[in-house]
Simulated scan of single mutants.
Amino acid sequence: MKRWLPFIKSNPRVAVVRLSGAIGMAGRGSLSDATIGPILEKAFRKGKPDAVALEINSPGGSPVQSSLIGARIRRLAEETDTKVYAFVEDVAASGGYWLAAAADEIWADESSVVGSIGVISAGFGAHEFLARYGIERRVYTAGKSKSMLDPFRPEQEEDVARLKELLEDIHANFKDHVSERRKGKLPEDQDLFTGEIWLARRATQLGLIDGVAHIRPKMQEIFGEKVSFRRYGIRRPLFQRFGVQLVQDALTGIEERAEFARFGL
C-alpha cells in the first residue's frame, strides 16, 4: 500500500523470475517464449520494480526460443528502464548462457557451470540395421533436399556440409549476441566461443560473468537491507497434471536430465 501513498517512500522491490530447465518448443513442457513471456511481462510492469532478477538454471536447448526470450527481456528492460540481474544456479550453458547474457549483470555460485557458447546437432544412423533385417524403407519427396540427413539412409557428404553451414550461421548469431551484451568485458586475445565451459571464478576472469554472488545478499548490497522480493512463475492448472500431460512431463523430464548430464549434473 505504501507504494501508492504520496510523500511516503517505499522500500526497494525486486521482481524475481525463474528460468529453469531445457529450452524448447512451446507446448512440450520446456522453457519457451510462449510460456515464460507473459510472466516476464508481469514481472517488469507490475508495480514498477526497482530491478528484475533472473534465476537461471538451464543447460540450453532451442536457439530460436533462447533468442526470443532474450530479446523479450531486453525489450522490456528498455521500455520500463529497469536493470536486469542474472543469478546462475547449477548451470547457464549454451542457450542458458544466452538468457544470462540478456541481463545487465551476471552473478553465479562458485560451482556454477557457465559457457558452452556453441551449437550442436546430434542424430543417429539406422540404415545398416534396416538392411540387416531386410527392411525396405520407401520415401518420396518433391525437392532434392527434402530428406536431408534422413537417419534411415547412408550419410551424404552434401547433407553434412549443408548442416555445418547452418550450424555456423547459428553460432555466428550466438557470438554476436554475447559480444554485444558483454561488450568491453571479454578478452580480445582469447576465443571464448569454442563450446568450452568454465566454473564461476574462471568465468569471471574471462569476463563472461561479473562475479560470485547469491541473489539475496547481492540485492541487499545494491538496494539495502530492506529490499523486498516478489516472485513470478508459471502456474499450471491442476487438471494438466494428469493423463496425457503427466506422460508429456515425464518425457520432457527425461530429455532435460540428458541435457543436464552433459555438464555432469
Results as ranks from 00 to 15, higher is better:
residue 164 K to A: 09
residue 183 K to M: 07
residue 219 M to H: 07
residue 93 A to S: 08
residue 89 E to L: 11
residue 213 A to G: 06
residue 122 A to S: 12
residue 191 D to V: 03
residue 206 L to E: 04
residue 247 V to N: 06
residue 102 A to D: 05
residue 70 G to K: 10
residue 125 G to V: 09
residue 102 A to G: 10
residue 247 V to E: 14
residue 60 G to Q: 06
residue 52 V to M: 02
residue 247 V to P: 05
residue 171 H to M: 05
residue 132 R to V: 02
residue 138 R to S: 12
residue 3 R to Y: 08
residue 160 V to M: 13
residue 73 I to S: 05
residue 32 S to V: 09
residue 180 E to W: 09
residue 231 R to S: 07
residue 88 V to F: 00
residue 122 A to P: 01
residue 195 G to E: 10
residue 83 K to L: 09
residue 143 G to D: 10
residue 124 F to C: 05
residue 191 D to Q: 07
residue 81 D to K: 13
residue 231 R to M: 07
residue 207 G to Y: 03
residue 162 R to K: 15
residue 113 V to I: 15
residue 153 R to M: 12
residue 81 D to G: 07
residue 126 A to Q: 14
residue 79 E to F: 02
residue 97 Y to K: 02
residue 212 V to F: 06
residue 53 A to H: 02
residue 16 V to I: 15
residue 224 G to A: 08
residue 230 R to C: 02
residue 76 L to V: 00
residue 18 R to F: 04
residue 150 D to Q: 07
residue 96 G to E: 10
residue 222 I to V: 10
residue 251 L to P: 05
residue 103 A to Y: 15
residue 136 E to S: 12
residue 19 L to R: 02
residue 232 Y to K: 00
residue 64 V to K: 15
residue 120 I to A: 11
residue 91 V to S: 13
residue 265 L to C: 13
residue 90 D to I: 11
residue 219 M to R: 08
residue 115 G to P: 06
residue 167 L to D: 12
residue 215 I to F: 10
residue 219 M to Y: 06
residue 132 R to H: 12
residue 186 L to F: 09
residue 143 G to C: 06
residue 227 V to T: 05
residue 43 A to V: 00
residue 184 G to A: 02
residue 229 F to W: 02
residue 197 I to S: 13
residue 62 S to V: 05
residue 108 A to V: 01
residue 103 A to L: 11
residue 1 M to E: 14
residue 250 A to E: 12
residue 121 S to K: 04
residue 233 G to Y: 09
residue 177 H to L: 11
residue 226 K to D: 15
residue 205 Q to K: 13
residue 196 E to P: 02
residue 66 S to D: 15
residue 69 I to P: 02
residue 37 G to P: 00
residue 215 I to K: 13
residue 214 H to S: 14
residue 237 P to A: 13
residue 97 Y to A: 10
residue 246 L to E: 07
residue 151 P to M: 07
residue 2 K to S: 14
residue 191 D to S: 01
residue 2 K to I: 12
residue 100 A to W: 00
residue 237 P to Y: 11
residue 210 D to R: 04
residue 180 E to P: 04
residue 121 S to E: 14
residue 173 N to V: 08
residue 210 D to I: 05
residue 56 I to H: 01
residue 69 I to G: 08
residue 228 S to H: 03
residue 132 R to Q: 14
residue 88 V to I: 12
residue 60 G to T: 09
residue 99 L to Q: 03
residue 79 E to V: 01
residue 177 H to T: 11
residue 83 K to G: 01
residue 172 A to R: 14
residue 69 I to Y: 00
residue 18 R to W: 03
residue 240 Q to A: 12
residue 252 T to Q: 15
residue 190 Q to P: 01
residue 49 P to D: 03
residue 18 R to D: 05
residue 217 P to F: 04
residue 213 A to L: 00
residue 187 P to G: 09
